[in-house]
């Protein structure tokens, strides 16, 4: 989350150059007052902690989105309304058009939560 002073500086680009990490922006809402970015970070362990610290040192608030989406298979009809909106193809059809989830791909963006007409998806 950006504060007003961050909006004027290319913090994300600076961090990408400094840390040489390939961030993927999934959602960005930035105006003159504040900003909120959802980024997927291909890092784990100490490298991830280091990146978080460098953002925090700039005063950017970092929130970790839970990666785990939970599908209520009683409610899910395998309609597919969540499949094409998922930006990373974590939701897909298995055999017989049954909905499947690849947890490792999910970045916790929540797009599927609103896309599901049966409210069958929750963030754990």
């Amino acid at each position: 989350m950006y504060k007003p002073e961050h909006v004027k500086r290319p913090i994300l680009a600076e961090t990408v150059l400094k840390k040489k990490v390939l961030l993927n922006i999934l959602e960005a809402k930035v105006n003159s007052q504040k900003g909120e970015l959802i980024v997927s970070v291909p890092l784990e362990g100490e490298a991830l902690e280091d990146l978080v610290r460098s953002f925090e040192a700039e005063g950017v608030a970092v929130e970790r989105l839970p990666r785990i989406v939970e599908i209520d298979h009683e409610r899910c009809t395998s309609c597919g309304a969540c499949v094409s909106p998922c930006p990373v193809s974590a939701l897909y059809f298995g055999p017989g058009w049954s909905l499947m989830l690849d947890e490792k791909r999910c970045v916790g963006c929540r797009v599927c939560v609103d896309a599901c007409p049966f409210r069958a998806i929750k963030m754990a």
Binding site: C79, G80, S84, P85, S89, G96, W97, S98
Partner: peptide, 13 residues
């Protein structure tokens, strides 16, 4: 472009 149904093909079957 990714496409997906809204009506369940599993249930239709």
């Amino acid at each position: 472009v990714r496409s997906s149904p809204l009506s369940s093909l599993k249930m239709a079957k």
